[in-house]
């Protein structure tokens, strides 16, 4: 004959809840701390280093390897009301002067500007004549300095009207600074040293 089932076993199991108060305390500390350092908008810095005043006044022409005078590129970009005006060798007409009109919607044609910058860099400036390695005495880092046939091959003078919105100029600086190699997707410098001026 089987035994009668125990009455105790029928008692319901009590669920044991873990004490989560210490974890909650930790959360209450962690969340404000993380909130203070969280970055919801990704910021970055657009660096601008104006050349020294004497360099602007004298121009950047120097002596070449054979002691001869090095020619200047004199790349100038005017941001006018009707569009961009790109000039090299200080010319205001011919092959070395190009006007990029506004798009039909009245905005600036940044893509055409980028194409023109790339054309000047590849067709007029060309590849570097030589590469020099420079050691920084403070950081002990070695940097590569590309020497082109034009002394001011990395520089672009940008002139704009006084009321031009800051966003337009930032976009212009983006388009003229560097380009991406279509095969490797690596960025290469176009004209990374701008000199900002104003159309009077």
């Amino acid at each position: 004959m089987a035994f009668k089932p125990s009455q105790r076993r029928k008692a319901p199991d009590e669920t044991v809840e873990p004490n989560i108060t210490p974890i909650m305390n930790l959360m209450v500390v962690l969340i404000p701390m993380l909130l203070s350092v969280a970055q919801f908008v990704q910021l970055s810095l657009l660096e601008y280093t104006p050349p020294p005043a004497e360099q602007i006044l004298d121009g950047e022409g120097g002596e070449g390897e054979g002691g001869g005078e090095v020619q200047n590129l004199d790349l100038l970009l005017n941001i006018a009301e009707g569009g961009f005006e790109v000039s090299v060798f200080n010319e205001t007409k011919g092959d070395n002067f190009k006007e990029i009109p506004l798009l039909p919607d009245g905005t600036y044609d940044f893509e055409a500007l980028h194409r023109e910058m790339l054309r000047i860099k590849t067709d007029i400036v060309g590849p570097p004549v030589r590469v020099e390695e420079q050691a920084d005495t403070t950081s002990q880092q070695v940097s590569r300095l590309e020497i082109f046939k034009y002394a001011d091959a990395n520089r672009i003078k940008i002139s704009a009207q006084s009321q031009l919105p800051w966003q337009v100029l930032v976009q212009v600086l983006d388009e003229t600074r560097n380009y991406r190699d279509p095969e490797t997707r690596m960025p290469h410098p176009l004209f990374p040293l701008p000199l900002l001026g104003q159309i009077q």
Binding site: V41, Q42, L43, S44, L45, L46, E47, Y48, T49, P50, V170
Partner: peptide, 9 residues
């Protein structure tokens, strides 16, 4: 001699 303009990436 150096200016860092803050922009949205």
């Amino acid at each position: 001699d150096t200016f860092d303009f803050v922009v949205t990436k």
